[in-house]
Simulated assay, not measured.
Amino acid sequence: MAQAEDLNLYGGTALQYYTKNDDGPSKSDLNGYLELDYRGAYIGAWAEITNWEDANEVDLYFGYRGEAGRLSYDVNYYYYVYPEVKGGDYGELGLVLGYGLTDQFTIGTELYTQPKTGNGSAYLTAAMLLGDRFGLDATWGKYDEGYGSLSEWEVGGYYMLSDEVSLGLRYYNGEDYDDYFRLELAWNTTFLTR
């Protein structure tokens, strides 16, 4: 998100449907978020309710993001809360870098580590804009202990139905789980800008 003004309050919600995989039956969820941004520094909360048992989630996070020419960066900390899972909460540090090869094509990397356990993950990303309303992206990486013993990848696309509403479809596959699709209807907006 570009910081056109000093202070911005963002928010949104999404309806999602996941096809069946080896972790359980098909999944449906409703999630939403609020994020306050001041000159690149941000703090936010994201929450999800789902039909999967013990899968409801609340994420609390903060960080700093910005741009230097074609390079974008985001340093953040997330704390994941699972209200119905005893001892399931954990924190994670993240570094996200992107580089715009053209105005339409971006490559990047994402690095994450859990300070408490030492587990981590590392990903390579690519994204392409196809006109004003359509985009494609792909991610490949390693996750689990010591920056990755298991690989996973995903590819997806979205279509902007309006300036704030999008329809997306993603495909996921990994060494440790069966492949599945996710269909998403999302709404994102700016509530306040000053």
Rank of each mutant, 00 (worst) to 15 (best):
Y82D: 01
Y73G: 07
Y38L: 08
E154A: 15
N21I: 00
F62R: 12
A41S: 00
N188H: 14
D103G: 13
S149E: 08
L183M: 06
V96N: 13
G146D: 11
V155G: 09
D54G: 10
R70L: 08
E67V: 11
E145D: 10
G168L: 05
G98S: 01
A126C: 07
T190C: 03
D132A: 04
A14C: 10
G108Q: 01
N31K: 05
E5H: 15
E67L: 05
Y42P: 01
R70W: 09
W140F: 14
K142Q: 13
L34A: 13
T102C: 04
T102K: 11
V165E: 10
G131N: 09
I49A: 13
G12Y: 10
G69R: 12
Y38G: 04
V155E: 03
Y78D: 03
K20R: 15
N56W: 06
E35W: 04
Y158F: 14
T106M: 09
Y99M: 01
D89C: 07
G63I: 03
L111T: 10
K116P: 04
S166T: 12
A14S: 15
T19L: 01
A122G: 11
W153T: 01
A127G: 13
G174L: 07
S162L: 10
T189N: 02
G135D: 13
R39Y: 14
G174P: 03
R133E: 13
G135V: 08
Y80W: 08
V155F: 08
A55V: 01
G40K: 02
G40E: 02
T125P: 01
G98T: 00
I107H: 07
V155D: 06
T109D: 03
G88S: 13
Y79E: 06
Y147R: 01
V81Q: 12
Y78V: 00
L167H: 02
G88W: 11
G100C: 08
G146H: 06
D54K: 15
V75L: 14
A138T: 05
I43L: 11
Y172A: 00
D59F: 05
D59M: 08
Y112N: 15
A45K: 08
E184N: 15
L124D: 03
L150W: 04
A55Y: 06
Y177D: 00
N173C: 05
Q104S: 14
V75D: 05
D144W: 14
L9S: 07
L130G: 05
R39N: 15
A122E: 10
G118S: 02
R170W: 13
K20F: 00
E175N: 12
Y42F: 14
L30V: 14
L34N: 03
F134L: 15
T139V: 06
N8Q: 09
L169H: 06
D37A: 13
L129H: 08
L185N: 05
